[in-house]
């Protein structure tokens, strides 16, 4: 792995934010170290000659299957909410989303 491909402190913060993972500072350092060791091992994939090879996203054994777009019975609200602590009537209740992100108030 080239030095510029190593994950630094700043990128760790970005990755944690992208992945929605709160990390304690000591944990972040430990994960950063292990992640870089892993990236170094996995970086060997670049050594394989793949000119002209199409990426394989799936085992590809099965043809695509389709079904009619019809309304079917689904879970009752009671079952949908049975594992949630954030119910408000027939809704999931979340804290304010205002003020988040670059376009937030």
């Amino acid at each position: 792995m080239a030095a510029d491909e190593a994950i630094g402190e700043r990128e760790m913060d970005e990755l944690a934010e992208l992945a929605c993972l709160y990390l304690e500072p000591a944990e972040k350092k430990m994960l950063n170290r292990r992640l870089n060791a892993l990236m170094e091992l996995l970086g060997k994939i670049g050594e394989v000659e793949t000119g002209g090879v199409e990426p394989d996203i799936h085992p590809g054994i099965l043809p695509p299957r389709f079904r009619e777009d019809e309304v079917e019975p689904s879970l009752s609200p009671g079952r949908v909410f049975q594992n949630s602590a954030h119910r408000s009537d027939s809704f999931f209740r979340v804290p304010s989303i205002a003020g988040e992100g670059p376009g937030g108030a």
Binding site: M12, A19, C20, Y22, M30, L31, L35, L42, S96
Partner: peptide, 27 residues
């Protein structure tokens, strides 16, 4: 806020191997 709610739940609920693979995949 909602982002902090998600991040704390995931940060406290997932173990180190799960976090490592999520971060690797994100990277």
């Amino acid at each position: 806020n909602v982002t902090a709610m998600y991040s704390r739940a995931r940060g406290e609920g997932f173990g180190p191997e799960v976090k490592r693979r999520i971060l690797l995949g994100t990277a």
